[in-house]
C-alpha cells in the first residue's frame, strides 16, 4: 500500500493535533508563559509609554523565542517513549514528510496562539497600529522558523533523560538572526519606515529552513533511535 506524501502529511498532522488538543495544558501553559514574561517587563522596567514602546519589539520577540522552547521537548518525546517513532522510522513512509507534519502541528499549538494573542500584548506595550501589523507579520513568517529550529534540537536530544536545558543551549544561538531581523522590522514599522526588506530576509530563512530542516530532523531522529 503506497500512501501519497500528502496523505501521510495530513494524517500525521491530524493525529498530532488531536493528541495536542487532548492535553490542553501543553498548549495553554506556553501561552500563559508568553503573556507573563511580557507582563513582567513593564513591572520590571517601569510603565512609561515611550520606554515600553522602545523595548516592545525585543520583549515580544524574546518572549516568543522562549515560549516556543517550552513545549518543544515533548515534540518527539512521547512517540519516542512508546516506540511509535521507531515504527515510523522502520516504515516505508518518508520520514521528512512525517517530521514536517509534526513541526506544523507544533507550530499550530505554539506559534499560532502567540500570533492570536499578540494584539492584546501590543496594547500592553504601547505598540501603535503599524507596529502591531509588523508584529503579526513577522510572527507569522518567523514562528514556523522557530518551530523548525527547535525541532532540530528536540530531535537531537530526544533519547536523553534530561534534554530540556540542553535544547535551549543548542537552539537559542541559532535563533539570533531571526531575533535581529524580526525586531528590526517591528522597530521600522513603529517609526513608519519600510520593513519589507527584513520580512523578505525572514521569508528567505523560512524557505531555507523548510528545505533543509526536515532532513536534519529526520537524520537526527534516526541517530537518536538507533
Amino acid at each position: 500500500m503506497a500512501l501519497s506524501n500528502w496523505a501521510v502529511y495530513s494524517a500525521t498532522l491530524k493525529r498530532d493535533l488531536k493528541l495536542a488538543l487532548r492535553q490542553k495544558v501543553d498548549v495553554v501553559n506556553p501561552l500563559f508563559f508568553y503573556v507573563l514574561v511580557i507582563i513582567l517587563f513593564p513591572i520590571g522596567i517601569g510603565p512609561e509609554p515611550d520606554l515600553l514602546q522602545r523595548v516592545a519589539p525585543g520583549v515580544i520577540w524574546i518572549a516568543a523565542l522562549l515560549s516556543t522552547l517550552l513545549g518543544v521537548e515533548k515534540l518527539f518525546k512521547e512517540d519516542y517513549d512508546d516506540g511509535v517513532l521507531e515504527q515510523l522510522i522502520l516504515s516505508p513512509v518518508p520520514l521528512p514528510v512525517v517530521v514536517m507534519a509534526k513541526m506544523t502541528a507544533h507550530w499550530c499549538t505554539s506559534g499560532l496562539p502567540i500570533i492570536l494573542i499578540s494584539p492584546l500584548l501590543a496594547a500592553f506595550l504601547n505598540v501603535n497600529a503599524s507596529g502591531l501589523l509588523a508584529v503579526i507579520l513577522t510572527l507569522l513568517v518567523a514562528t514556523p522558523l522557530l518551530s523548525i529550529i527547535a525541532a532540530i534540537g528536540a530531535a537531537l536530544t530526544v533519547g536523553l533523560q534530561k534534554g530540556g536545558v540542553l535544547i535551549s543551549l543548542l537552539v537559542l544561538p541559532l535563533n539570533i538572526p531571526i531575533l535581529i531581523f524580526a525586531t528590526s522590522a517591528v522597530d521600522n514599522a513603529m517609526s513608519n519606515s519600510p520593513y519589507n526588506g527584513q520580512l523578505a530576509v525572514l521569508t528567505a530563512f523560512l524557505i531555507l529552513a523548510m528545505m533543509l530542516g526536515p532532513f536534519a530532523v529526520s537524520s537526527s531522529l534516526k541517530v537518536s533511535v538507533s
Partner: peptide, 11 residues
C-alpha cells in the same frame, strides 16, 4: 555553539 557541541556530546 562550541559549548553546545561539547554539552551535546557529554549528555
Amino acid at each position: 555553539i562550541y559549548i553546545g557541541i561539547l554539552a551535546l556530546y557529554n549528555a
